[in-house]
């Protein structure tokens, strides 16, 4: 059984098949960008993209990911460290405070913009509704997504 994480194909270790995807990413692959806020699917801090769709990785078993392609926050910036325009927009708009929700927020927003590069603010709200942020009141996150949208026309 294999899965792809940030472009790297990996064999799923036997011992991990029944365990949760978030633990596998954090503990086995040391990809700690995805966070654990609740482990019951309520907060979205563990969000990763599976085949371009946002998934709460605390709710998935690694075995379920066979054949899937997973993108974590660590895979979004260019290898040389150049930020993805969406990451830059999060900084410019002041969408980052404590940053604990940020990786998940950026990934749900990325999935939205891949599908819909010109969302309304209401559509952005709907897209990030499953991800909790206690710091920002969401407004500057929504600003950031709006500001990044034009870049997705070029993709």
């Amino acid at each position: 059984m294999q899965l792809t994480v940030n472009g790297i194909v990996r064999e799923i270790p036997e011992a991990w098949i029944e365990k949760s995807l978030i633990r596998y990413l954090r503990e086995e692959l040391a990809l700690t960008g995805a966070k654990i806020g609740c482990e019951v699917g309520a907060c979205g801090t563990c969000t990763v993209l599976v085949d371009d769709r946002p998934v709460k990785s605390c709710l998935k078993k690694v075995g379920e990911m066979a054949g899937a392609s997973i993108l974590t926050i660590e895979g979004l910036a260019v290898a040389d460290g150049t930020l993805h325009p969406l990451q830059q927009a999060f900084i410019d708009a002041g969408a980052v405070q404590c940053g604990f929700c940020t990786p998940g927020m950026i990934l749900v927003a990325h999935a939205l913009l891949l599908r819909n590069p010109g969302p309304t603010r209401e559509e952005i709200r709907r897209a990030i509704h499953g991800n909790l942020c206690r710091c920002t009141g969401y407004q500057q996150i929504i600003d950031a997504v709006e500001q990044a949208a034009p870049h997705y026309h070029e993709f």
Binding site: R26, A30, L31, T32, G33, A34, K35, I36, T72, I73, E74, L76, A77, L83, Q87, Q88, F90, I91, D92, A93, G94, V96, G99, F100, T102, P103, I106
Partner: peptide, 24 residues
């Protein structure tokens, strides 16, 4: 400074910021 600049923002948007549970 540039608009939006924070000393910890790049680390936080790239997932490189190490919170306590990320320490090994």
């Amino acid at each position: 400074k540039a608009k939006g600049w924070r000393n910890d923002a790049v680390a936080k948007v790239t997932g490189r910021a190490q919170f306590t549970d990320d320490l090994k």
